[in-house]
Amino acid sequence: MVIIGENIHVIAQAVSTAIRERDARVIQDLAKAQTEAGADYVDLNVGPMKKDTEETMQWLVNAVQEATDLPLSIDTLNPVAMEAGLKTCKRKPLLNSASGKSLSKEQMLPLAQKYSCDVVISVMTDKGMPPDVESKIESIMDTVAYANELGIPNENIWVDPILLPISTAGEGQRFTVINLEFINILEDVLPEIKSTVGLSNTSNGVPDELRPPLNRTYMVMLERNRLHSAIADPLDKELISLTKGGMPEIVELIYRTMDGEDIALSSLSQKEIEYVKTAKVLMGETLYSDAWLES
């Protein structure tokens, strides 16, 4: 699993202050920490970047490149900021992200072609979020065909199905199930294509201390279904260990749960029980509630 480190994100107060005050050290520390923790890319989520767009982006990319040799994922909806970022990257970057929306097709996809970089393309279209597996596949096939015509090959495209919070009243679990299935069939309909997800979205709205088990378990489940990468928190040691082969018994247990095996919880440790219960809510087998580990 290719891990795109998510920690340089303007929503974090420290990051937005550091960018505004040009305090490179804060940003560089985050980049170094993620590199050491095992990230494969560093995501730079800069928001809309309305002021001093180009200069700010160049400063940020250069600051991060001084601290790490990892390739960068430039994460903004602002095409001017995007181009400034891509231009400044020393290694082949990831354009994060484009979508099937007209504006994105006109402004973002040509940049991916121009800089021959990798590009995240989400399933969103002008009509919004496709509600089920079939319409997600349909939307992404259209957008990928468009990208191919621009000269962007499938192997440069990382499809994002858009994860939604599992705790969304009533509906959230339906999405976790749909996205598992979507990832599972994606490569069959679009050979050579890659994929990525904003992993932490799954646990958005869930009490902080309960977020890691959801993120970790879902990553293992998606990885089994051939997910190529995840934008995630590399500082979560257990998450990294799960994907780098450090916890094969837990991975096996999650797989058995996915296969519908009737696992006797009494023979398991507390941690193992939690992974089984979490897999069951993520695959929609038991109804989610914030107390899912307690019942």
Binding site: A169, G172, L287, Y288, S289
Partner: peptide
């Protein structure tokens, strides 16, 4: 309040 996830959570906690 009109939410199946919250409803279940309350029952889980109450049933302890």
């Amino acid at each position: 309040p009109l939410d199946i996830n919250l409803l279940k959570e309350l029952n889980v906690k109450l049933c302890k």
